[in-house]
Simulated assay, not measured.
Amino acid sequence: MSMVTYIGLNFPVEINDDYTEEDVNITYVFSESEDRQIVKNQHFTTLFVYELETKGDHIWDMHNDKKILSPHNFSKGDYCEIYICWNGEEAEDSKKKLDLKLAQLPVEQVEIYEKCLITLKN
């Protein structure tokens, strides 16, 4: 089983099927369209659901240096949702919900586990 990081956005983005040197890619590695639909219906309020592939630090390892690399192309007031779970457990209830504002990073300490729903607001 694999840990999957889903991201929900209110705008479509291009899927990256090719290997890149970027720290974070929007692609589909482990999830199927049915899995993403479950996450959209059960956890997200956003219109589009994708999967994040991370290299190096995980998306939830947020600190001041990463603030620059966070979803920086969001308009003021926009947001994204991130849901982390084991592949196959998308329909289970979330165990923890966090609302984070990019302007207030760094976050002192955030413990993120499986089945955690994070809303990042700009």
Rank of each mutant, 00 (worst) to 15 (best):
I112H: 01
Q109C: 05
V24R: 02
L120H: 04
E22D: 11
N10I: 12
T45H: 05
K101F: 15
G56D: 09
V49G: 01
M1T: 13
N64P: 00
I59S: 01
E14A: 08
L102Q: 05
T119Y: 01
E89R: 00
N10Q: 06
T54G: 01
I68V: 13
E90G: 01
G77H: 06
W60P: 00
P12D: 14
N64D: 14
N41A: 11
T27N: 02
L52F: 08
F44G: 02
T119V: 11
Y19Q: 06
C85N: 07
L69N: 08
D99W: 04
L120G: 05
L52Y: 03
W86N: 09
S75M: 12
D93Y: 07
K97N: 12
N10M: 08
D99E: 12
K95F: 15
M1C: 09
V107R: 01
S94N: 12
D61F: 08
T46R: 01
H58P: 03
E114W: 07
K76I: 15
E81T: 03
K55T: 14
A91G: 09
L9I: 14
T5F: 06
E92S: 03
Y79S: 10
L52P: 00
A91M: 12
S75D: 13
C80F: 09
C116L: 04
S33Q: 10
S94V: 15
I68Q: 06
Q37L: 14
Y19K: 00
M62V: 15
S33Y: 12
